[in-house]
Every structure is written in structure tokens, then in C-alpha cells.
Design a protein around this nucleic acid. Structure first.
Length: 589
DNA sequence: GCCGTTTTCGGCCCGACTGTTTTCAGTCG
């Protein structure tokens, strides 16, 4: 069984134990174990197993180590099988209903014999749920609403769409009288490719007018909570948004806390405790004594009140950690050693390579795309329309591509745009791993982006060999959208990314970070290791119209999450250096 | 189930809101 599959089993054991009413700390230990092996990486995981086991990895002790070894060797685990058999499978899916946790599910199961969402719905309709101790009419009505809307409510939202909704809210909050500071926190601020809900943190002298404004925004479909310091609303899209209002002295701590991630926060709190301090969204206080951090902070003035998150990290002897890195994946250890890199920024980019025009499936003409890149101040804009096998996208054959090269040459010569247009193509990688166009025409281009657009269902070995063969082709400059995933629409194809990354590293092929908000492919979770192996990244918007060029912002998020620096990204280079790098690949091959 | 300069037991991150209660449990983040 693979590392990821084992992590899933541990996580599921945690859920099942929770439903059984097990000790919550035991539950957390299984979930922490799952995260620990996910964070380990494949190579370290396999090496440690070969060397005798994972005991000693933080979060994995004797019991988990033995279970992991059994799963790895045999693909099954008696303990897990027995646990699964003892719990009705419908109870797990009931956890999806908002307001239902393990305790209530256990009561519903024990008292009413409910073991599925369908049975729960009937019991609510009959009024049997409201009659239970600890439940009531309101709970019953909320459960029915939760069941009816569970698809819409449970869905995550593309970062791009969530950002478009959040930006004007932050601006509106900041413009309110009495608001001192306002930020969006949560996974949006961490730049995750999808966002579960929005979190807004506001420092204000008086909360009520802020809450009033927030719950009466256009597009609010329901107000799900409304207290003195907090409100929650649900938008028509199903996206939920939480607002928290705090005193100014608490703002930095609240912003850090609600930015997360959970793993990062747990590690930060453990670090505080190791220094005799207790950290919460309320502040930082001495750990001794039984009172809450809140009580201590409010009782003892003055306490440390940092102006910014940088100041908060400094209180724990840490270098500032950018929000994108706060995933509990080694950023605190790096910050301790002063090893947090200067991450790439939007302003570092000087152009991009993978964009379409009306010649294939784009909606803007070459001239329109050039003018838009000019307006962005880009030094270069690469055009890479589809090749002939992508028939549905009106892909170009050798002859049409030749004409496009000439058109681009004339456009550059005319001096109409400061932005230099580069000639490229998004060339299909055919099912056998060969490229879709003749070497002769490919050699006339500035570069070639090679991408898979067909036969997605090939097995992992076939797909991996196919892509590696394309990487080995001397004309290939950039490997396009490595897995082909479309977030929330389609899984990526099966491919061994570790082998693809190795092949790209040894052949000097650049790997694309496709910044289309639906793709964000290759995923940020692989970039740190890829860059360490010497792979260069190209952040490409894959724009199909002029507005699509802005999507490059979504790519910057993921590049930052992947610990990439300016020097790891090809399109931060000035034009002359880019041309030299593209030529070097040709000469080397 | 994990962990340890609080070390083999007894902790384990912390707080707000809702709905049910009449002082609090459960859920959520």
C-alpha cells in the first residue's frame, strides 16, 4: 500500500474512533499520524520503512509504526477491518451535515437506530429528533436544511472566485467608520487552490455597526450566526463567510490564528509552551496558572502587543513566515534557522509562455493579446496555440503555424508594442509519447510547450513513459499542465510525478505551473522537492483571452506555497536571458 | 495513541456561538 493510501486509512481510523466515542486525544493521534507520513515525502517514507520503521518520526509511536508497517507490507490491517465492520457506514457520511458531530450522531444511532442520512431525514420529518434530550425543534429544522443543501454547502470554491468575492468585502470593511484594520484570513490568505469558507478579521472600537454592514451585503442568502463579536453568512453560491471583530490589541493574534493552518497553529502553540508561554487568538501570556489566555491578557497590562505578524513571530524567536507557507510542513523549523526564502512575487514576473489566440481556441486576437501584455508592462508574451491533433481546439498544423510565425515576426518588426511576442506552440504529446508536429517546424520556434490532451485513461506506467519520452525529445522546452487535472471537475491522469520530475531535471526541461484557476498544475505540494532537484518553473496563465492573463496571480500563490524563489522561475528573467536559456536547451540537446 | 529539562503518568491548543438548558454540551474553526 502506498504512503498516501496509508495516510487515508489512518485518517479514516480517526474518524471511526471518533464515532465510537473514543478518547479525543487518541483520535487526534491517528490524524496527526496521517499528516506526519504525508509530510514525510515518498523517499524518506520508503527509506525509513526499509531501515526498520517510522517510530521516532514526530507523531508516530510504537502502535502507529506497527500499523503502518502492516499496511505497507500486506495492504490490510486487522484492527481497521474490525473497526469498519463494527460501525454502520452511514454514520460516517452523517458527519457531512453541518451541526452534526460524533456525539450527536451516537445519540441518534443509540436512541433512534438512525444509521444513514436518509433515515435521519425521515426521523426529522416525523418529529422524532426534536423529542430527544439535547435536541429540539430548532436543531431538527437545521438538520433538515443541512441535508437539503449538503451538496452546495459541502463544496469547496476556487480560490479565484472566492478572492473576487472577498476583495470588495475587505475594501468595504476598511472604509467603515470605526474600523481600524481589516483582513481576509483563512485558506484564501494562504493561497490554497480551493477555499472552504471566507474569514474576515476586523479591529474596531464598536462591533455592532460592522456586523450590521456585513450581514446586509448583496448576495447574502442566509445569516447563520450573529453574536456580539462574530457573525456568519452564507452567500448564494453556497460559500460561507465568517466575520470576527476584535479589539485592536488582539488583531495580530486573531489574524494569525484564523489564517492557520491548523497544523501550523498547533506547532506554534507547542513552541510557545516550550518557552513557558501560552498562545491563542487572544494573545501571548505566561503558561502557568489555570486561567485562560484571554483572562491573563485582559488582567495583566501591559502584555506584548506586536504591531504586525512579523512581531508575533519575533516573540517566539522566529523569522517571519509568509501566510502561504503556514501548512505545518517544516516552515517553523526553517524560520528557526533563518532559512525562510524570499518567495517569488507577482512583480517579479516579466512575461509568460503559454497563451492562446483566436488562431486556435482563444477568444482574443494576437494583436489584442499583445496590447494587453503591453498594458501589464510585460517584456515578452509567448503565444502557444494548440497543435493539429487537438482538433476540437482548432489546433494548428505545420502550415498554419508557419504563417503564425511570420505574423508574429511582422508584428514585432512593426514596433506597435513594447512587449516582444515569442513564437511557441502547445504541442500535443501523442499517446505513444511522440510530438504532434515535425521537428523541422518545431525548430523554428522560440520554444515548445508539450502537453497531454488525449488518452487520459492510460495506466500510470504508460502515461509516465509517454510523458518521459516527450521530455526526452530534444525540441521540448516546457512540459505543460503535468497532471491535466481540472479542480472540482476532473482528476488528473495517473502519472508518477517523481519520475517525471527526475526526467525534467536531467534533460533541462522546464515544468509549467499552469495558473489557470481550474488547473493550478503542477500542484504546489510537489514544487519544493522539484526545485531542490534543479527543475526550473514557468508560471503560465494559459490565457484564452486578454482577461485570462490576470490568472497568473493564482499561479503566484501556488509558486509561493511551493517555496519557490525568483531564481526558480524562468519568466522572472529579462528577455535577453530568457532567449539565451531557451537556446541553451536546444544546443544541449 | 503520543510524548517527556513537568520523563513512564498524566497531560494533550483554545475560545465563540447555538440550542438546549437553568449552568452547559456539542460543534466549529
Amino acid at each position: 500500500m502506498t504512503r498516501n493510501e496509508i495516510a487515508d486509512v489512518l485518517s479514516e481510523i480517526g474518524t471511526l474512533l471518533e464515532l465510537q466515542g473514543e478518547n479525543p486525544f487518541k483520535v487526534r493521534a491517528y490524524q496527526a499520524g496521517a499528516r506526519a507520513i504525508e509530510a514525510l515525502g515518498n523517499d524518506a517514507f520508503e527509506r525509513l520503512l526499509a531501515e526498520g520503521g517510522l517510530e521516532g518520526v514526530r507523531g508516530i509511536g510504537t502502535a502507529l509504526s506497527a500499523k503502518i508497517a502492516e499496511l505497507h507490507a500486506t495492504g490490510r490491517l486487522d484492527f481497521f477491518e474490525r473497526l469498519k465492520a463494527s460501525i454502520a457506514p452511514g454514520l460516517v457520511e452523517m458527519l457531512q451535515i453541518p451541526g452534526l458531530g460524533p456525539k450527536k450522531i451516537k445519540v441518534l444511532h443509540d436512541k433512534l437506530g438512525i444509521a444513514s442520512i436518509a433515515e435521519l431525514e425521515r426521523a426529522c420529518t416525523d418529529g422524532r429528533v426534536a423529542a430527544l434530550t439535547g435536541f429540539g425543534e430548532k436543531t431538527q429544522a437545521n438538520l433538515l436544511a443541512g441535508i437539503a443543501n449538503r451538496v452546495a454547502y459541502g463544496k469547496r470554491h476556487l480560490w479565484w472566485n472566492a478572492w473576487a468575492l472577498a476583495e470588495p468585502i475587505v475594501a468595504g470593511l476598511r472604509a467603515l467608520a470605526g474600523v481600524l484594520r481589516a483582513e481576509a484570513a483563512g485558506s484564501l490568505r494562504r493561497g490554497m487552490e480551493t477555499v472552504g469558507d471566507l474569514d474576515f478579521i476586523v479591529a474596531a472600537a464598536s462591533a455592532e455597526p460592522v456586523v450590521d454592514w456585513f450581514v446586509s451585503r448583496p448576495g447574502v442568502a442566509a445569516i447563520t450566526a450573529r453574536g456580539e463579536t462574530k457573525a456568519s453568512v452564507r452567500y448564494e453560491s453556497g460559500l460561507q463567510a465568517d466575520l470576527r471583530i476584535v479589539p485592536e490589541a488582539q488583531f495580530v493574534f486573531a489574524l494569525h490564528h484564523f489564517t492557520g493552518s491548523k497544523d501550523h497553529n498547533v506547532q506554534m502553540r507547542q513552541r510557545a509552551l516550550a518557552r513557558g508561554l501560552s498562545l491563542s487568538e487572544w494573545g501571548l501570556a505566561p503558561a502557568e496558572g489555570a486561567e485562560t489566555v484571554k483572562a491573563k491578557v485582559q488582567a495583566s497590562h501591559p502584555v506584548a502587543v506586536p504591531e504586525s505578524e512579523e512581531g508575533l513571530f519575533a516573540l517566539l524567536d522566529l523569522q517571519p513566515i509568509p501566510p502561504e507557507l503556514r501548512e505545518g510542513l517544516g516552515e517553523i523549523e526553517a524560520a528557526e534557522q533563518g532559512a525562510i526564502p524570499r518567495l517569488i512575487e507577482l512583480g517579479d514576473l516579466r512575461g509568460a509562455f503559454h497563451n492562446h489566440t483566436t488562431e486556435s481556441d482563444g477568444a482574443s486576437t494576437l494583436a489584442e493579446m499583445a496590447a494587453a501584455a503591453d498594458a501589464l508592462g510585460w517584456e515578452y508574451l509567448g503565444i502557444a496555440d494548440h497543435s493539429k491533433s487537438s482538433y476540437q481546439a482548432r489546433g494548428l498544423d505545420e502550415e498554419r503555424l508557419m504563417r503564425q510565425i511570420e505574423e508574429i515576426r511582422l508584428s514585432n518588426a512593426s514596433g506597435r508594442h513594447r512587449t516582444r511576442i515569442l513564437t511557441g506552440v502547445e504541442c500535443d504529446i501523442l499517446p505513444d509519447g511522440t510530438l504532434d508536429l515535425d521537428d523541422e517546424i518545431l525548430g523554428r520556434l522560440d520554444y515548445v510547450v508539450a502537453s497531454v490532451h488525449s488518452s487520459f485513461a492510460q495506466d500510470e506506467a504508460t502515461m509516465t513513459a509517454r510523458i518521459v519520452r516527450a521530455i526526452e525529445h530534444p525540441m521540448t522546452t516546457i512540459l505543460g499542465h503535468v497532471t491535466g487535472r481540472l479542480l472540482q471537475r476532473r482528476e488528473g491522469y495517473q502519472v508518477d510525478l517523481s519520475r517525471v520530475i527526475d526526467a525534467a531535471a536531467s534533460h533541462g526541461v522546464v515544468i509549467e505551473l499552469n495558473a489557470s484557476p481550474y488547473r493550478v498544475d503542477m500542484d504546489w505540494r510537489h514544487w519544493r522537492a522539484a526545485a531542490e532537484r534543479g527543475v526550473l518553473c514557468a508560471i503560465n496563465p494559459d490565457a484564452h483571452d486578454t482577461a485570462g492573463l490576470a490568472h497568473i496571480r493564482a499561479g503566484i500563490n501556488s509558486a509561493r506555497k511551493g517555496w519557490l524563489r525568483r531564481e526558480d522561475v524562468l519568466n522572472t528573467l529579462p528577455l535577453r536571458d530568457v532567449m539565451a536559456r531557451l537556446r541553451r536547451r536546444r544546443i544541449a540537446s
